[in-house]
């Protein structure tokens, strides 16, 4: 039934419109941009962050590399760099720890790790906590296993959602270190 109806219907009866007609006029609209090609060679870098495998930073190129002769289009001026706020500065590394202080810290931590916690030692000697951590990492293995046990006890009380959240967080951190998204 339907098939015969379709067959009888001539194509010529249907009005032809190459472009749908509506209130928006395509040819006269102000949004009617036409691409205009720039003559000659154009540098059109990717809008994404450069993958390290695509481009070696200029500072890491050996002096014999011919890429050093190319025009440096990507680097910023020194003023622009200095306007960006600093997160970490390697020149702020301090070497004020003497062997005497180190041995004293290690001794205190070995004698009584419960009283001389990392935080207390850092406060006493006026240094950062992670430095104390690095210095005394190997001295008290018993204390370390004890703390790990305590942490595991706390973890057993965590809800399933919290545990999942913490696990996901550590997995995400590993992804940063692999340059994965």
């Amino acid at each position: 039934m339907l098939r015969t109806q379709i067959r009888r219907y001539s194509v010529k009866d249907i009005p032809f419109e190459a472009v749908p007609r509506n209130r928006y006029n395509q040819s006269r609209s102000a949004f009617n941009f036409k691409p205009k090609a720039t003559p000659g060679l154009v540098h059109n870098p990717s809008h994404a962050i450069f993958q390290p495998s695509q481009r070696t930073p200029r500072a890491f190129l050996p002096p014999s590399d011919p890429r050093l002769k190319l025009k440096d289009v990507l680097s910023m001026s020194r003023e622009d760099v200095e306007e960006c706020p600093l997160i970490y500065n390697a020149s702020q590394r301090e070497y004020d720890l003497t062997p005497e202080i180190v041995s004293e810290i290690v001794e205190l931590r070995t004698q009584d790790p419960a009283t001389w916690t990392v935080g207390k030692l850092a406060k006493k000697f006026g240094i950062e906590q992670h430095k104390v951590n690095v210095l005394t990492a190997t001295v008290s293995k018993e204390r370390k296993t004890q703390l790990e046990g305590e942490l595991n006890d706390i973890k057993t009380k965590w809800s399933r959602n919290k545990l999942k959240g913490r696990n996901d967080r550590s997995k995400r951190k590993q992804m940063w270190l692999r340059n994965e998204f």
Binding site: I49, P52, S53, R55, T56, P57, F60, L61, P62, D65, P66, R67, W176, L177, R178, N179
Partner: peptide, 15 residues
């Protein structure tokens, strides 16, 4: 990490 990989993945080219 990006900077380190930029160093390690250096691939030389000739003149």
């Amino acid at each position: 990490v990006n900077a380190l990989m930029g160093y390690y993945l250096y691939s030389p080219i000739d003149q």
